[in-house]
Design a binder for these strands. Sequence first.
DNA 1: TCTCCGATTAGAC
DNA 2: CTAACGGTCTAATCGGAGA
Length: 427
Amino acid sequence: MPKPPRSIALVDANNFYCSCEQLFRPDLKRDGKIVVVLSNNDGCVVARSAEAKAIGIKMGAPWFQMTDIARKNNVIGYSSNYELYSDMSNRVMSILRDLAPAQEIYSIDESFLDLSGCHDIRERSYAMREKVARWTGLTVCVGIGPSKTLAKLANHVAKKHPRSKGVFDFNQLTPRQLDSVLGNLEVGDIWGIGRKLSEKLNALGIENALQLREADPASMRARFGVVVEKTIRELRAEECISLEEITPARKQIVSSRSFGNPVTELVDLADSIAHFVSTAGGKLRSQKSTAGILTVFIMTDRFREDRPQYHPSFSVPLPQATADTTILANYAAQALKRIFKTGYAYKKAGIILADIGQEHIVQTDLFAEPEPESSSRLMEALDAINFKYGKGTLRLANDGASTAWAMRTENKSPAYTTRLDEVPRCR
DNA sequence: TCTCCGATTAGAC
DNA sequence: CTAACGGTCTAATCGGAGA
């Protein structure tokens, strides 16, 4: 007897960031106000509500360029509120976790679930939707298929076609129905096939998912690389991309930001760098890693072609891998001094931690003083205090001394679910 | 010629 | 008031430097 196909589900929240904002402001829809969420620095549109999509607002549209018409069209641009979105995400993810044998949290609003062997897949899928709706107010769609790529594609179908009622399962189709559905999906709708690859595939006459599935994996690999080959195999229900229940440790940790206003002074850059080191160091320690290389970069505004451009970076190979923010901050400050030049208006800066290894397997420098035990104790205390009392309660002396580099956030909603002091009183 | 490494590209969200 | 175009991450691929 042939093995039954695996059933991988991809559960994805609809218009996640915008839905989070709308949840706490039911008055907006009532008054015909259209919600979009902006990137950091209120730069461009990164999330659109159903209403925003309906009036044709484009993903990635620079907010400052949005016509007055759009703004007068009652469009409200919210500054991104990650504290709110990640708390809502945690709630959704924990509901889903309890409804499936295995879960991979793929992004802030998506999780893959392995439902292979479950006899009640349809009922479970609807239960997910109902439970998430009742407990959080958010709407999710469920796509199911024998591979992750097909689950993603099924989710796309579930979102696009109201008739699916939010659940679509490729495993429930006859081969003919399957071909017909795939034939109606553009290659660009497939996970892993972006803008560039779509263009190249179209030029070869491969325009829909069915045509890509029928392409020869070996020759496509030669032409477009291993990613496209895997995608073809996944469309053929071969499992090439496995479910990862445990998030692998980051191999690189970046913390960077564009500034609300251009920065010209070294002290202000130094302040921002100290902040980035704290953020990145915290992430490093939360995954129990150490970094062996630290890179500092600063850059001018690449959109201002009329101004002199400068975007240097400097990498420091650390004599001994560490996760100690104070040590990292010292090297970062030195690196910054090496690259900083006066006379430029800097628009962005950041740091990169690389050569990441496991804590306690640190290759020590033969000639260096061993890192004192007090160093890790200090970091533990720092992390504990900041966890308990909120990010930034305890920080480096020069982190926060300057506000020159602060990003623009003009319209941020309260952290409704996590900060009582921000919740508006009932009116 | 081979290998290593950094830079670049492409993609995701 | 004006100016204003995100951040984080991975994998693959490319091209030069050095062995």
